[in-house]
Design a protein around this nucleic acid. Structure first.
Lengths: 249, 249
DNA sequence: CACTTCTCTGCGGTCAGACCACATGATAGT
DNA sequence: ACTATCATGTGGTCTGACCGCAGAGAAGTG
């Protein structure tokens, strides 16, 4: 019986890889796309001549990568559906990489700085849509917010800047970078002596950044972003900021 | 009941999620780290009270994310080992996102441009190590190379620039961005009339970029990177370059 | 006829058990 | 002492089974 032969040597030594490759190819060929359902796991297994468990491993990868959403039950919303917008994949990847010490927190912060200043410069050269950012800035003016809530809005603000570029890749990266150091940011708050003063300063700086971009002053936007971020991290974590790169490379 | 409650709401509704969370927590707690082995799947399953298949789904995710390497057999090199350096995760993520049309190719190219110019500027402000880049540039001077080989070296060159920053996150992102559009780049070559002339120009531009960085001329480096990339994409894919942003947003 | 309730069915989620292939290390044979 | 063989542990995979869920359709009810 065992007709377990790979007719095509696609380097897919493992069954789940062939499933992943197959789905990727179907996507590239346009046979399936955002909004479509993946075939049921049992069908896919039968079709590809692999076990259902192998199919599940591939599906699981796609889910964590943020490509699909799975749901139990029946009906049009059930099953594995290809998502139209990326979500979570980058965050999950970066969070795990940071956890496994593959990415140093310092490098993540530096990358964020690099990306965000570039974003600010690009925005300053256009006429971006700041509606979301403005809403977030107004929300951050609420004095009833605690540090955690404030920082959540803060994170959204910075991501909204990335989104204002209209570039989903940049937005996803910013979201991923931010979420991967979320724990460190929150932990750093407790080390800040005068949170009220700090948050007030952050609010001012946010407005300043937006203003510089609106004015089309790329240089000012760049500098303000840089100061905004480096200043905060220095304040929230003086030790690491001084030690520069504490990686064990 | 050895459930680790973290500040984050874990909500692990599914078994494989709890496995992933458990491993992530062990990493964060420093109980395991780069170079260490994950427990055997069977042990992990027993320890966490889940089926081996659920453990495998989590392990598979970690593998595709580039956190671990698995190997069959026995001995010290067998099993699942936590990798010291990130590899592949970002590439896999971006390649799949592009395939699923979550990321538009145009956005990827723009992001690459954004990142790489920022990298060039940062490099120009320091005294980076260009040994790898130089080796690659010399290798590209070989006239016996075909387009595919040349572009492979080209890709490595650009990634080596990112690596020269000493920032692994940036390097991983560049590698991911690059690999996600690899297919498009290769496909574009066939549309280039005079490849010899184009490759000669690319070589010149590469040298020019490195020179600008060595001279500490950030502005020139920025401009040269921008021209280098936009010019090539315009040449390799006139249609899409003209259509600007073909996203389905 | 309109409405409610129940059952059927398909699908993801999970588990248990069984093999296979493989690489190592111990063991037996020369 | 050297070599061939086997035992062991590990990932990789398949099969078959069962659960819970949610929609769809049938059955019952007013």
């Amino acid at each position: 019986m065992t007709s377990r032969r790979r007719v095509v040597e696609t380097t897919d030594r493992r069954a789940w890889e062939s499933v992943l490759t197959h789905i990727e190819q179907q996507l590239l060929d346009g046979l399936i796309g955002p909004g479509d359902h993946l075939p049921p796991e049992r069908s896919l297994a039968a079709e590809l001549g692999v076990g259902r468990s192998s199919v599940r491993e591939a599906v699981r990868v796609l889910e964590v990568m943020g490509l699909i959403r799975t749901q139990t039950g029946s009906g049009p919303t059930a099953g594995a559906i290809i998502l139209a917008r990326p979500q979570g994949g980058m965050s999950a990847l970066m969070r795990l990489q940071v956890a496994a010490q593959g990415f140093a927190v310092g490098d993540v912060v530096k990358t964020r700085l690099l990306l965000e200043t570039a974003i600010a410069v690009e925005l300053a050269e256009g006429s971006p849509d700041f509606r979301d950012a403005t809403i977030l800035l107004d929300a951050m003016d609420d004095d009833a917010l605690n540090a955690e809530e404030f920082l959540a809005l803060d994170a959204q603000f910075h991501v909204s800047l990335a989104e204002a570029t209209g570039n989903e890749v940049v937005a996803a990266m910013m979201a991923g970078l931010r979420s991967s150091i979320e724990g460190y940011v929150l932990a750093g708050v407790s080390g800040i002596a005068d949170w009220a003063a700090t948050s007030a300063r952050l609010r001012r700086e946010h407005r300043g950044i937006v203003q510089a971009i609106k004015d089309g002053d790329a240089a000012a936007a760049h500098v303000r972003i840089e100061n905004h971020i480096t200043r905060y991290y220095a304040e929230a974590n003086p030790a690491e900021a001084a030690a520069n790169d504490p990686r064990s490379t």
